[in-house]
């Protein structure tokens, strides 16, 4: 059981990295990765919201949509629930944990429409995970997001201080760099099967 959870966690962090292998959540990946501190803040918010969203959407799917044969509504219901949840979390943080709100606050509304969060919830369902497995998978995806963000913030730091050809300045070189980082993550393909044989 424990090994199974570790496999799910490692898979979602390294092999099925949401940003670099599934190309979900690209906008924050490109938008907020300029500075390491912001990248870390955004990632923490994503981890938090992903786990919360999974905890909210999995029961709704299993106990509400499945019995009534409404599984085709999953996308729209999940969007609705996640949006409300993020708002709720923001208010709660603002009231009870102002310190955390100050560091995560700016990023929380951005996550409302983050496809990585929605993607995790939908994929957990389609992979047939149970509640516990879903939570672990969501946590792993969040950690994977953080890994990608922090790595890429470093890469962007290097780009900033290098002499980029004029035609590539700005977004083009960022996308080229992102694709190379993404390629490097394909090196993890197959690692899980061999690690936990």
């Amino acid at each position: 059981m424990f090994k199974h959870m570790i496999i799910i966690l490692m898979t979602s962090v390294l092999v099925n990295n949401y940003v670099l292998n599934k190309f979900l959540g690209i906008c924050p990946f490109l938008g907020v990765s300029k500075k390491l501190k912001q990248a870390a803040g955004m990632s923490l918010a994503v981890i938090f919201v992903q786990v919360m969203a999974t905890a909210a959407t999995w029961p709704i799917y299993t106990f509400l949509l499945v019995p009534y044969n409404l599984t085709y509504l999953e996308t729209i219901v999940f969007i609705l629930v996640i949006a409300a949840l993020v708002q709720f979390v923001e208010m709660t943080l603002k009231k009870f944990i102002p310190g955390l709100y100050k560091s995560l606050g700016v990023y929380l509304p951005l996550i409302t429409t983050n496809c990585a969060v929605l993607g995790v919830c939908l994929n957990n369902i389609s992979d047939g995970y149970g509640f516990g497995e879903s939570l672990v998978s969501a946590l792993g995806c969040g950690l994977g997001f953080m890994l990608a963000m922090v790595l890429f913030a470093g890469v962007r730091g290097r780009i900033e201080s290098s002499d980029v050809p004029k035609a590539f300045k700005g977004l083009p070189i960022t996308l080229v760099a992102a694709s190379i980082v993404s390629l490097s993550f394909y090196g993890f393909a197959g690692i899980i099967d061999n690690l936990f044989k």
């Binding site: 709704i60 409404l70 509504l73 708002q87 709720f88 208010m91 009870f96």
Partner: peptide, 24 residues
Amino acid sequence: IAVAILTAIGLLCAVLLVIAGKVM
């Protein structure tokens, strides 16, 4: 049923948010 469930979820979220907005 589909309409009812979706409306119910939406309403529930709305009510929760309104209450939360007042309380917090």
